[in-house]
Amino acid sequence: MIESIELVRNLYPDEVYISGGVDQSAIDMAQNYLNCVFPQRYSEFLNDYGSFSFFGFEILGILGTNFESSVITDSIRTTIYYRRKGLLEDNLIAIYDDNGDVLHILQAGDSEDSGVFVWDLSSRSIVRTFSTSFVEYTNDRIETAIQNLSQDLS
């Protein structure tokens, strides 16, 4: 469990969307489909939450195992989409798409955690490190979303 997600889930239940955790077989299917291994912390997120959205911040996850024809965008569909267009390397996993110029990505690999990086679609390269860990990224983005929500409510 990620504490910041649990916090906003309890404090702002009407502003939080969690699709629901997925089982290990769905995670295994997604990894096989993408031909990569997810970092452990991201796999735990998928198992606990599936996908997550809170006041403009989202983490793409897994929304089912029909990866080719899903009508709802998730991490697997987004990753495959950009790979097929030649805009994303095979060792990268998209977890956020700003629908424009950049993705937030994880590096695939059998590790406990991965930093989160900003991937520029036009240059096809990492342009900066967003955070050194997936959990830190989630906490920082939720903190920003809470600040934005507080400003909107005032």
Rank of each mutant, 00 (worst) to 15 (best):
M1E: 13
S4N: 12
S4R: 14
E6Q: 14
E6M: 11
V8E: 08
V8M: 11
R9C: 09
L11H: 05
L11Q: 09
L11K: 09
Y12D: 00
I18L: 15
G21A: 11
S25H: 08
A26H: 07
D28E: 15
A30R: 02
A30L: 11
N32A: 12
N32Y: 03
Y33H: 11
C36P: 01
V37G: 01
P39D: 08
P39R: 08
Q40A: 14
Y42F: 15
Y42E: 07
S43V: 00
E44Y: 03
D48G: 00
D48N: 15
D48M: 02
Y49G: 03
F52K: 12
F52Q: 03
F54V: 06
G56R: 02
I59H: 10
L60T: 10
L63R: 10
L63E: 04
G64W: 03
G64P: 04
F67A: 07
F67S: 05
S70I: 05
S70Y: 01
S70H: 02
V71L: 10
I72N: 12
D74A: 08
T78R: 11
T78Y: 02
Y81F: 15
Y82T: 03
R83M: 10
R84I: 06
L87P: 03
L88V: 02
E89R: 13
D90N: 15
N91V: 06
I95G: 04
I95Q: 01
Y96I: 02
Y96Q: 13
D97Q: 04
G100V: 01
D101F: 08
V102E: 03
L103D: 05
L103E: 06
H104L: 07
I105G: 02
L106I: 10
Q107W: 03
G109A: 01
G109K: 02
S111T: 15
S111A: 10
E112S: 07
S114W: 10
S114C: 09
S114H: 07
V118L: 12
V118K: 12
S123E: 14
S123K: 06
S125V: 04
I126Y: 00
R128L: 09
T129D: 09
F130P: 00
F130L: 12
S131M: 04
T132Y: 12
S133A: 07
S133P: 09
S133L: 06
L149Y: 02
L149Q: 01
Q151F: 14
Q151G: 00
D152M: 15
D152Y: 15
